[in-house]
């Protein structure tokens, strides 16, 4: 929107808010299509989730106005975050976030911070699993770690998505645990990364479950351990013999690495509590659908839901954690 448009829009919002205050307090509802910004490219994890939510909302008619997914992936998502940051007071713009909410400003110095946006809700947390090719000789995480330790540094290649983002941070954490550096090779998307491992062009990846699930089922990849404090609660068999719940934690395998990625919703700065409540309720309804439950199971997500102060506290803590990890790994912007 243009400057003048924004100004006029704000005036209009203020006017409506004033009327709202004097009249009967009515629940807010979107009055035009809602833009759903994805700070990542088409086909990635965040994009898949956003489009899935769009589908659920449309299919179950959860909102009178449509939800429109817009990809703004430039500068590791900075483009999308800056867009929402700039749309002050606009309640028709929401953004789905991933770890780049923390990593992008820290790594690039692009000026934004989660505090510039209005936190909506945490939808789920995404897990990370250490994968190797099914033909590789390593059956357990311990085997793999021993192999890494016994060879000179940089012998093993780890593929991941993007640079100085979650995958590389995890790699740095594993490096620290083993004491040997692995070569990190960045690719554009999680799907590409998994295929590089299937084709045995690299030795391991830390793909999210949903990115590698099909290859696991197809007998091409093998999960070694999961980077969480406890095993996954999904006990339905994925392959003939294993379920997500059978994957041991990395900690128990001697690699003390824990990392979860945020999948949450943020609003533009300066929106009213009413407007936040509308979206929080909307996502509560989305989470109640059977489609969502199926999606969570398929992608082995951790189904934590948070809003309000609890969510803000979590964000503050997680940001501090990223700062610490990235400082240690030398990923901070100079």
């Amino acid at each position: 929107m243009t400057k003048f448009g924004k100004w006029a829009g704000r005036a209009l919002v203020t006017a409506i808010a004033t009327i709202g205050l004097t009249g009967v307090a009515q629940a807010w509802e979107p009055t035009k299509p809602v833009e759903f910004v994805v700070p990542a490219g088409t086909g990635g994890g965040a994009d898949q989730m956003a489009r899935f939510i769009q589908g659920i909302v449309a299919k179950n008619k959860l909102m009178a106005q449509p939800l429109v997914v817009v990809n703004k992936s430039g500068g590791a998502g900075a483009e999308g975050f800056l867009e929402v940051k700039g749309a002050k007071g606009d309640p028709h713009k929401i953004i789905i976030t991933l770890s780049n909410l923390f990593t992008t400003p820290l790594a690039t110095g692009v000026p934004f911070n989660w505090r510039d946006l209005t936190p909506g809700a945490m939808l789920a947390l995404d897990q990370f699993v250490l994968w190797v090719n099914a033909d590789a000789p390593y059956k357990t995480a311990k085997d793999y770690v021993e192999a890494v330790k016994s060879k000179p540094a940089n012998t093993f290649k780890m593929a991941g998505t993007g640079s100085k983002q979650e995958d590389q941070i995890i790699t740095a954490m594993i490096d620290k645990a083993t004491g040997k550096k692995m070569t990190y090779v960045p690719f554009k998307g999680g799907g590409d990364v998994a295929v590089q491992l299937v084709g045995a062009h690299v030795d391991s990846t830390v793909n999210n479950p949903i990115e590698a699930e099909a290859h696991w089922r197809g007998g091409k990849l093998r999960p070694l351990c999961i980077m969480d404090s406890e095993k996954l609660p999904y006990n339905e068999k994925v392959t003939a013999t294993q379920s997500w719940g059978d994957i041991p934690t990395c900690k128990s395998a001697g690699v003390p690495v824990e990392y979860l990625m945020l999948r949450g919703i943020f609003l533009a700065p300066g929106v009213t509590q009413d407007q936040v409540d509308f979206y929080v309720n909307l996502f509560k309804k989305v989470r109640e659908t059977p489609d969502w439950a199926e999606f969570m199971k398929k992608g082995a997500f951790k189904q934590t839901f948070m809003t309000g102060k609890e969510f803000s506290d979590w964000l503050g803590k997680t940001e501090a954690m990223h700062y610490g990890l990235m400082k240690e790994a030398g990923f901070l912007a100079k």
Binding site: M1, T2, F4, G5, A8, P33, E35, P66, V68
Partner: peptide
């Protein structure tokens, strides 16, 4: 198509 185009006053 639900594609927002630039709008003015």
């Amino acid at each position: 198509f639900l594609v927002p185009l630039p709008k003015g006053p």
